[in-house]
Design a protein around this nucleic acid. Structure first.
Lengths: 205, 205
DNA sequence: TAGATTGTTAATCGATTAACAATC
DNA sequence: TAGATTGTTAATCGATTAACAATC
């Protein structure tokens, strides 16, 4: 099935399926069914089967899915059967927290370099890295063929920095700045903004 | 219009509208139009008008929306025209980053208390707070009438802690643990998981 | 075989958008 | 008034789900 025909909302659920499979495996299970996945994730079993059917046939009638096999397939589909190097932009509090977060490495996402434009931060240690000047951004991104950036800069410079990143070949941005970025549609952006989450939950309180 | 009829996806966009209004105001504008908001946010103007129409008529034909007025209305709708107190559970690296993050206070969300179950962390400073024992959770939540929790504990205890929070009256959870929580439907959960974001973006690379 | 579960179709449901009368 | 933009309707589009033949 051609990639472009898969709705983005389906792609967004695949990591959740994968995470649940890992969890079930940890519980000692080796097979599961769409019904079990659905209950644990709060989806419908039909949705899970339909989502998977965009990519192939991974189950066995009467039995369900082999957990290890389905995990492997999902990792291939999502292209996370390899290590991805990322650039971290912004070495403030948030940048420090991100550099120290173990969850990225655990899933084969590596922070390969960190950048800031404040002279007093350049050269400082950040986790295992040394903060580099933004002047070095072009050469480092190019040399290491980095396609993913984590944007942890203040809101008022985020749009400018993001534009620069895209010009330098970045194709995916994990954006922690609390603004909506204007970028070419070919560039993927995933927004992390806890305040937006809080503001939509309070509506229901 | 009765609250329950408003789709959750609409509620989720209101904070983005609000954020853009603040941004436009900073640019010196006092009025805007659905068309302008739409372009800046990457939505359609019809969607913005329709979303707002769930709650009333806030614009003027031929002119558009008064930015200050629409902001005020949106804050009321989202119930963020007041200060909300939150409990922070987990005083690890992530908990520290959250305690130091200025973005919550800037939008009138206050971390009122922080908890951890590790004896060596209890009593330690965390931003302006002192880490308290989980034993104190029931009394503090009750006394301060806290309805929102930020969950920053390891994945393997997140479900148990979340269940406990709900029993103690928590109605909204900002979940930083990389698992899907099983909670009663009346409880709102907003998931923050950068790895899930990265894993869906790599599909397109 | 009998029971269970997949993969898929068609129906349903819900969200988005085009279009325009109303009106500032 | 002429021009612009809202609020709303109806049409369109897309996602979810119920149902079941296929089959392990």
């Amino acid at each position: 099935m051609p990639q472009n025909s898969v709705p983005a909302i389906v792609i967004g659920r695949l990591p959740l399926y994968l995470r649940m499979l890992t969890f079930l495996e940890l519980e000692g299970k080796t097979i599961t069914a769409s019904q079990e996945l659905a209950e644990r994730l709060g989806f419908s079993s039909a949705q899970i089967r339909k989502d998977l059917s965009y990519f192939g046939e991974f189950g066995k009638q009467g039995t369900g899915y082999n957990i290890a096999y389905l995990q492997k397939q999902l990792r291939q589909i999502l292209k996370i059967d390899r290590t991805w190097e990322m650039a971290l932009i912004g070495a403030g509090d948030l940048g420090h927290a991100l550099a120290n977060y173990r969850g990225f490495g655990a899933q084969n996402f590596r922070i390969a370099a960190a950048f800031d434009n404040a002279p007093e931060k350049i050269g400082a240690r950040l986790g295992d890295l040394t903060v580099q000047s933004m002047d070095e951004l072009p050469s480092v991104l190019h040399e290491r063929k980095i396609q993913i950036a984590m944007l942890a800069v203040p809101a008022d410079v985020a749009q400018a920095v993001a534009g620069q990143l895209v010009e330098l070949g970045i194709r995916a941005v994990l954006n922690y700045a609390p603004i909506t970025l204007s970028l070419p549609p070919k560039v993927k952006v995933y927004y992390i903004d806890p305040v937006v989450g809080l503001q939509s939950m309070t509506y229901y309180l």
